[in-house]
Amino acid sequence: MKLRLLLSASLFAFTAALAPRAALAEVSPLDLVQPIADYKIYVSENAEKLVADTKAFTDAVKAGDVDKAKALFGSTRMSYEAIEPIAELFSDLDGSIDSRADDHENSEKDPEFTGFHRIEYGLFAENSAKDLAPFADQLMADVTELNKRIKDLTLPPEKVVGGAATLMEEVAATKISGEEDRYSHTDLWDFKGNFDGSRKIFDLVRPLIEKDESAFVTKVSSNFDAVETTLAKYKTADGYELYDKLTDDDRKVLAAAVNTLAEDLSTLRGKLGLN
């Protein structure tokens, strides 16, 4: 009798809270074929764009044109950030392309520290393209290899759908603080890439759950909209304001939206019947 008392009290508390619904929509694996195929096209297009943009960026670095390289840094990364859940499937390349100084024991001086952020460090912290040519060559080779591997890749559905939440987890855990692009402060460009990539996945599978999960779909959409609205305040002619321009209030709004999206999108796989 005491046990029943405890159980009923606890069930009340959880149903009253904003817990996700336990009943799952009926989604057949076949329904996912078209969204996954469409996503493959999205990833391929972004990978192609990454190769082209990185070419222009690394050319500027190698030519010693610091100003031009700096100007291209933020936009070049966006296509990578948009497809990060897929790019990260190749952990060797991800480490080489996108690791940060604190991923390495000796920080900036560590010989393993390469890729975008090593070049960012040279350009923005040291204001020089000197000694960056080898890093530029390797970055170009890495993104070319990434593009090739993506072409041959069969996208695992759970990775694709899970990627929507993964992107938000990345922002929530390591980006909202402004530590990703710590030398250039172009974090808002990265955010935009991450949000676009996450929303793309959500939009592709949205028709499959729209009917059974309309409250969920509305909530996620409105949180994506809140992010878009906040980011739009910082749009400039050729990109975004630097991260230190972000007001404390807007940072809180973004942090809450990102965490809520991460929480809600963590149920997307399950709602689509994926393990």
């Binding site: 069930l11 959880f14 809270a17 336990a22 796989r269």
Partner: peptide, 26 residues
């Protein structure tokens, strides 16, 4: 309200509900 509901449950203790394994647990 949500804080109070959570505080009431946590201070009383009990069994949280279980969801489908395909979803994160509450």
């Amino acid at each position: 309200r949500t804080l109070s509901e959570r505080m009431a449950f946590l201070m009383k203790g009990g069994t949280p509900p279980t969801f489908d394994d395909k979803l994160p647990a509450p």
